[in-house]
């Protein structure tokens, strides 16, 4: 369907990570948790104030803030 930033993904939407742009601490932390190109993710939900977002990756649930999700580009289905 196209490439969008993780922030723009809807709840329950799935996609494949295309690129991860963050560097330094944030980039490292994101990658340590398995958010790397090629991984499939699914948006599980959002906190009541719409931020952070929770997503499913490799069978577990991960949370990210929206401004952190901006660094991740996803090819959505």
């Amino acid at each position: 369907m196209g490439r969008i930033s993780l922030r723009q993904m809807q709840v329950d939407q799935t996609g494949t990570i295309i690129s991860v742009k963050g560097t330094g601490e944030l980039g490292r932390r994101i990658r340590d948790m398995g958010l790397i190109p090629g991984k499939k993710i699914k948006v599980q939900g959002r906190a009541p104030l719409h931020d952070p977002v929770s997503l499913r990756i490799m069978g577990f649930t991960l949370t990210l803030r929206n401004n952190e999700a901006d660094h991740i580009e996803v090819e959505v289905q």
Partner: peptide, 10 residues
Amino acid sequence: STPFVMELPP
């Protein structure tokens, strides 16, 4: 502020 990359345990 610092990243909020955190696991939600089942």
